[in-house]
Structures are given as structure tokens and as C-alpha cells.
Amino acid sequence: MRANFIFSEVWIGLRRNLTMTIAVIVTVAVGMALLGIGLMINSQVSSLTTFWTDKVELSVFLCKKDDVFPACKNKPPLNADQKAQLKQTIQVMPQVERVDYEDQAQAYKNFQAQQSNNVLLSVIQPDDLPESFRVKLRNPDNADALADQLTGRAGISRIVNQRKLLESYFGFLPKLRNMALGVAILMVFAATLLIGNTVRLSAYNRRRETGIMRLVGASNIYIQLPFVMEGVIAGLIGGVFAAVLLIVTKILLFEGIQSYMAVPLGWNTVAGVITFTMAVGVVICVLASFITLRRYLRV
């Protein structure tokens, strides 16, 4: 096998089909970049899920004086003994890990820290906010069952599963991921067809050479390798562009929303994603080339 012979053939082939080669490179680059973005969002979603799962609590809000919640209407708020009793009741439940009491002053502090709406800040007084128990669960999946058990008890106005709140905030991420992956699959499909077409053109342009190679007894691999290499090189260049796009995405997009994400997307993950997408790109190119060669280059 003579490497420089193969490479000069590959170079000639790529240059003759320049426009097709560019189309292949662009499609592979965009397709692989979208695949990579999908994978990066995916890793972000799963690390966020584990991160927040550790933190979510069940908030059990208590009735305050003259509360408007239906559960509290015309009922006096719990006195200190009753509160202690309720806390004890929750505490002994098998699913519960820990129960913390949050009084109105603490609730107001938290409210001030989270809220940036000045009107609300000026209107709401500590008395307006309910006291609550913050229930930490051993297994957050049991939150709904526990909420059902507690609903209806005297003195409880409302039970909020924080996970549901989070899901409404971060629910768009899986959707974004699915969209990116969906478009990536389409691009991979387009890339496959384009590579097939490029190889076909290339085989047609070089039919004279390949005809002679067949006659003088060149082995199949010698005849086919230049065509497959064309696909591989186009795929690799596309992969490099995809890698650049992914790095830019990481810097501009993922670092921009880092503050909401709590778990930063590490460079290790990005490197893994880039390696994977490049491998996928090259494998697709090789397969597409081989399949087309079977049809258009009779050996």
C-alpha cells in the first residue's frame, strides 16, 4: 500500500468535487454540532436533576389568622402546642428525613432575598406570609404520597412540592434537547445522501482510472480506499467545524445561563461530546461511502 499514491488520488478527488465537498463539510458540521448541543443539554439536564433532587423539600404552609385559603376558612390558626404536635407527627413518618420550622420573620427574609418586584416588596409585610414546615424527604419520589397524607389536617393551608415548581422552570430543557436531536438526525440523513452523491460523482469522474486499475489487477481496497478517504476527510473537517461550534456554544450559551443552572457544564463533558460527535461523523461518512461504492463502482 503506497500512502502517497492514495493521498494524491484523494486530493485530486476532493478538488474536482469542491462544491460537493463543501456541502458535505457544512452538513456534517451543522449536524454534528446539533447532535453535540443535544448531548450537552442532556448532560446538563441529568446533572441538574441530581443536584435539585438532593435539595427539594415539601413545603407545608400553616394557616395564619383570617387566612383566605379554603382549608383555613373560619378556623383559628394553630397554637404553639398544636404546631409542636404537628411537627412531631410529620417527624415520625417513615419517609421523612428532617423537618424544619420556618416562622414569619424567616419567611419574610427569604421573600426579600428572592423577590425583585419593588411594588410587591413594599406591600407585603411579614404578617402576610404564612409559617411553614420545610420537610426534607429520604426519597423525593414519595413527596406526592406524603402530601396526600397531610392534606386536610387541621391548620394546614397548602402543601407545595418544590420539585413541581422546578420542573416548570426547567421543563423547557428536555424539549430543547429533543428538538436539537431531531434536527441533528435530519442533518445526518442529509449528510449521508450528500456523501453518497459526492462519491458517485467522484467515481464517475475517475471511471477511466478505476477501469484501468481493475484491468491491471489492483485490489478492491486499493481502488476503493481513495473514495472512502474522501468521505473520511470531508467528515473530519466537518467534525472540526462542529467542535468549534460546540466550544462557541459552551462559551456563549451555557456559560451565559450558568447562574440559573447551579451545576456548570464542565470542559470534560464538552471534550467527551466533541470526541463522540467526531467519531459519529467519520463513521457515517465511511458507511455512506462504502454503500455508494458497492452500487457505483463495480469491482
Binding site: 500500500m1 503506497r2 499514491f5 477511466r208 484501468i212 491491471v216 489487477g217 489492483a218 486499493y222
Partner: peptide, 20 residues
């Protein structure tokens, strides 16, 4: 069936190059 972009020597050598 010669290759038009190769000279005489290269055309003959081609047959040996491609069988390694």
C-alpha cells in the same frame, strides 16, 4: 485507454503503482 493527464512513463508506471 491511456490516462490523458499522465505522460508515457507515468501511464506505464500507473499499472505497477496500483498493485503496490
Amino acid at each position: 485507454r491511456l490516462l490523458p493527464n499522465k505522460n508515457v512513463y507515468e501511464n506505464v508506471a500507473f499499472a505497477l503503482e496500483v498493485i503496490g
